[in-house]
Design a protein around this nucleic acid. Structure first.
Length: 565
RNA sequence: GCGCCCAUAGCUCAGUUGGAUAGAGUGUUUGGCUACGAACCAAAAGGUCGCAGGUUCGAAUCCUGCUGGGCGUACCA
């Protein structure tokens, strides 16, 4: 932003500090009334051998007002800058108007590819509420990186390989019935899977049987492969339905099975590098120099394990996409696993191991019981989404009985509300699932933001005044100016979100923007008769900009807007 | 046992490389629809930042110890 740059230049010139030092020191004051930008003088205290307040006072006087700066104040050890509101508003609003939906975007990612692995449900298991965490975060991160100019690849690393399929095949052979399963695939497969676990507790030999079936699968046995393919196909149909509801899509479904023929190479590579050692009949990479437990590469029965598949996947991805960053959106409980994988890649001499990042997130818990597929205690995501849509539909029907596309609106609001619930806090926090919280559409929620958008759009619909050439120098009140300066801060929010892989920076941003807009909306008339024409135009332009930025920001979260609700 | 993470208002959470009077939402109490949309706005009350030390001009933030909780700890993913 040129205002900030201008002030940094001036401070640099007058203080004799390095430009970089000044850049790092300037900050946005905690309160709007303290100014638009602040420079704390504490860093100068030692070299100048003066008290910070005295330095601040001196610096403030030296800088003074100019074409960008309205006034400069020294408060305590801070120099506070107030922009010229008329100039700032004009600059920001016209920039937004010409940027359109690209406002807040950047080209820092140009020519670089970011991979985002997310969602990654297990085949033949329900797509439950816990999967939404990875799906929502990954989906949003991909959009955020794309907004910053990166090429992106969305990867669904399906859990379609592993001993669990041995279990499922064993269970199917014992209790499966194709006709029953075809009617309600996931539920029926879940039933026999749960039954398997219950039986295995009584008879541990079942576990051996499961391992045997998985080994057969890896060896390409025809019958087990056909069964596996069947489970995979019917599961994908179910998942696709949920992804469609969420508006989520993927560029690649290369899951674990995709790497089944690419793992021998990894084992050989490790062997040639003499990184493998035998331990209790398994082959492992010793990581004691990294202070973490060894990473198992080949199990004692000769079958592979997920670590092997993740190594093969990383190497494959580097060759295929030459990524700048390889992001894994997977729960924090797997932190150690990824630490092991990245350490092994590093030991193999791949300098790109440092570009692999595990983006963890918390658990979805229930107030009383634990979510567990093995025991069948599970809340289906589809049920949560439908419940939310249903509740929205009731509200819409009550508030706007004459609306034509109620279902479509309810879909967008209802799903937005759920997504928002998973994107509103820092990702490593656990979420305690409760219907009340999920379906609370007041305050900090997607419907609150969507409602603000709809209100703004409603105003723009009601007029045919051409406001594009408005003179925005009229926009100088505290509340209007607060909106303008929030609009200016969008790119920072997007960058912060990418830097920390935290979509909630965008969630918080758009919520603050909506709040500021509602405040403005409540106390500033726009289309009323007693508003003069110029003010009317200026405010319309502001409303236009706000609605546009809300739409763009929500889109980065994978949440849609509606014109009325 | 060891490793990682967490502890901030009744509840759910923000709090940037240490910096200005620790902020939102929700809940509670109260006010505002004859108004461009009340899924909204305004106001009040609500804090020993888990505890105890230390570093610093300055600590919710950094260091040490303690208490309480979560997760992980090789052939599940």
């Amino acid at each position: 932003m040129e205002f900030e740059k201008h002030i940094i230049d001036k401070i640099t010139e007058l203080s004799g500090l390095m430009r970089e030092t000044v850049e790092n020191a300037v900050e946005i004051p905690p309160e709007k009334k303290l100014g638009d930008l602040a420079f704390p003088c504490f860093v100068l205290a030692k070299t100048m051998r003066k008290a910070p307040p005295a330095i601040a006072k001196e610096l403030a006087e030296k800088i003074g007002s100019d074409e960008y700066i309205d006034r400069v104040e020294a408060v305590g050890g801070y120099v506070n800058f107030f922009y010229r509101r008329d100039v700032f508003s004009k600059t920001v609003l016209s920039a937004i108007k010409s940027a359109g939906e690209n406002w807040g975007s950047s080209d820092i990612g140009k020519g670089r590819t970011v991979l985002v692995e997310f969602s990654s449900p297990n085949i033949a298991k329900p797509f439950h509420i816990g999967h939404l965490f990875s799906t929502a975060i990954g989906n949003s991160l991909e959009k955020i990186y794309r907004h910053l100019g990166y090429q992106t690849v969305k990867i669904n690393h399906l859990g379609d390989w592993g001993t669990q399929f041995g279990k499922l095949i064993s269970a199917y052979k014992r209790w499966g019935n194709k006709e029953v399963i075809d009617k309600d695939p996931i539920n029926e497969l879940l039933k026999i899977y749960v039954k398997f676990h219950n039986e295995a507790e009584k008879d541990p030999s079942l576990e051996d049987e499961a391992r045997m079936y998985f080994k057969m699968l890896e060896d390409g046995d025809e019958e087990t492969t056909a069964l596996w393919q069947y489970f995979r196909d019917i599961s994908l149909i179910e998942f696709e339905r949920v992804y469609n509801m969420l508006g989520v899509s993927f560029d690649s479904y290369a899951g674990e099975s995709f790497y089944s023929d690419k793992m021998q190479e990894v084992v050989d590579l490790l062997d040639n590098m003499q990184l493998l050692s035998d331990s209790e009949n398994a082959k492992v990479v010793n990581l004691s120099d990294c202070n973490i437990p060894p990473c198992i590469i080949v199990k004692s029965d000769g079958a592979t394990i997920y670590a092997t598949r993740d190594l093969a996947a990383a190497i494959y991805r580097k060759r295929t996409y030459d990524f700048h960053k390889n992001i894994y959106v997977v729960g924090t409980p797997q932190a150690l696993h990824f630490k092991q994988i990245f350490s092994v890649l590093d030991k193999m001499g791949y300098e790109w191991a440092k570009d692999c990042v595990h983006v963890g997130f918390g658990l979805v818990k229930f107030a009383d019981k634990k979510l567990s597929t093995r025991h069948g205690d599970v809340v289906f995501l589809e049920d949560v989404l439908n419940e939310s849509i249903q509740k929205t539909l009731e509200i819409v029907s009550k508030n706007s009985p004459s609306m034509e596309n109620k279902e479509e609106v309810a879909q967008k609001i209802g799903i937005g509300a759920i997504l928002y619930a998973f994107l509103k806090s820092s990702r490593e926090r656990d979420i305690v699932f409760s219907w009340d919280d999920m379906l609370d559409f007041e305050g900090e929620s997607a419907p609150y933001v969507q409602y603000s958008y709809a209100r703004g759009r409603s105003i723009l619909r009601r007029t045919d005044i051409d406001y594009l050439n408005a003179d925005v120098s009229k926009i100088t009140s505290d509340d209007e100016y607060a909106l303008v300066s929030l609009l200016a801060g969008f790119e920072d929010a997007v960058r912060d979100a990418a830097d920390k892989n935290e979509p909630f920076y965008v969630t918080r941003y758009v919520t603050n923007l909506a709040r500021a807009f509602n405040k403005f909306y409540n106390s500033y008339p726009i289309l009323k008769n007693d508003v003069d024409e110029e003010t009317k135009k200026a405010r319309l332009l502001l409303v236009d900009a706000v609605t546009q930025v809300i739409k763009t920001a929500l889109a980065l979260l994978g949440i849609e807007t509606v014109e009325s609700m």
